[in-house]
Design a protein around this nucleic acid. Structure first.
Lengths: 114, 114
DNA sequence: TTCAATACATCATAATTCTATGTATTGTTA
DNA sequence: TAACAATACATAGAATTATGATGTATTGAA
């Protein structure tokens, strides 16, 4: 991102949402998916993503299983029950924030969030 | 805001945009306006706003004149020429970010930013 | 065989807003 | 008229969070 600060507070919502949609994903896959879906605009760094995944796991929102691909290890993360609830909260929160920001700064634009 | 972190990186854009619209405003007025326009959701604190105004002035984007209301002092801030240019950059930046986030997380919603 | 990509990880740093604290004036209301 | 809320500015330290730098190791392509 151009302005790195804008991303702050959104990473949790992004991870939870993608996992809610995909069921389970591993770290590297998540970073690639975000990159692809954002048109190469959001480039999650290792130094951001892995600590975030650990933190969300510690919160009890994620769990993971390890898969061994040859000699390489993948950690597939998925939402726990608490995580599913949290995903809804975070998504609604972010939507609300975007609505508010839109009203404040871009009132003339169409911006419908159900 | 519920999630304070979400606001990060948006404060500069907010201040520049309001000044672009209003011509000139003083600090306290800015905070009130943001509060009102956001439906009491974004509550800028003194500790955020005044340092931000100083920083933006130092960047050369704002200038101010002092007005004495009785014994009280008000600093009316306005955009410099550089500030006017910067406002456009910051606004477009934020719009672009919101578009990206929308594509990533809420692709089903209508979200038109010209 | 060299390099890019895959796949994980941690630590120190930077950036930004908030909390806490401070000073002082003005308007309201009990 | 006394107390309190609102107005109006300010700064220093704390908290949060993503990044940069760095590290290890495997796999596939040129």
């Amino acid at each position: 991102m151009h302005n790195k600060e804008l991303l702050k507070g959104t990473l949790t919502a992004i991870v939870l949402k993608l996992l809610a949609d995909k069921g389970e994903m591993y770290g590297y896959e998540l970073a690639q998916k975000v990159k692809e879906m954002s048109g190469q605009k959001i480039l999650l760094k290792d130094g951001s993503l892995y600590p975030a995944l650990h933190k969300l796991s510690k919160e009890g929102w994620l769990e993971f299983r390890e898969e061994h691909i040859g000699k390489r290890v993948r950690k597939y993360y998925s939402l726990t029950a608490t995580g599913i609830a949290q995903e809804k909260i975070e998504s609604e929160n972010l939507k609300e924030f975007m609505r508010t920001l839109k009203d404040l700064l871009f009132p003339d634009f169409t911006f419908k969030l159900a």
